[in-house]
């Protein structure tokens, strides 16, 4: 991911901050400047819940690493990677890894909480990227 693009998104990746339409109350993540429902441009920052539940998931067993080093973005994750779609608030879902779990412990409906982890290394010399990931609630 290009550095400016990562930088512009840190509010999302670090803090899960979305936006909420002042008119209809619809919440968006990532943030938007115009509401798709009523075309209102009056939206305010809205920090999302950091806890949610798993709607669906998969266990990725193919390696994401690139032995040829042709891709400079290395996705930093445990293998196998458990990836899930998580509902944080009614109608606001995110796709993210579930870490520190045994794949067999994950169920549709499992409760999870957000943690702060490294997700990208731009090669050996480039910047490091951090973001939300989730783990099962203890």
């Amino acid at each position: 991911m290009a550095i400016p693009r990562y930088w512009r998104n840190t509010q999302h990746y670090y803090n899960l901050i979305g936006s909420k339409c002042k008119k209809c109350g619809r919440v968006y993540f990532p943030q938007r400047s115009v509401c798709a429902d009523d075309d209102s441009a009056e939206l305010e920052e809205h920090p999302l819940s950091r806890e949610g539940k798993i709607l669906t998931f998969t266990v990725l067993r193919t390696s994401l690493s690139d032995p040829s080093k042709e891709n400079t973005d290395v996705i930093v994750s445990e293998m196998p990677l458990v990836l899930a779609i998580i509902e944080l608030e009614k109608g606001v879902n995110v796709t993210a890894p579930i870490i520190e779990c045994e794949p067999e412990d994950i169920k549709i409906g499992s409760k999870v909480e957000a943690v702060f982890r490294k997700i990208m290394e731009k090669g050996e010399k480039g910047i490091l990227g951090y973001s939300y990931k989730f783990r099962l609630m203890r």
Binding site: L83, T95, I119, M120
Partner: peptide
């Protein structure tokens, strides 16, 4: 790219 692929979603 920003909210699926970046998290490892193929």
């Amino acid at each position: 790219q920003n909210f699926e692929a970046w998290f490892g979603a193929t």
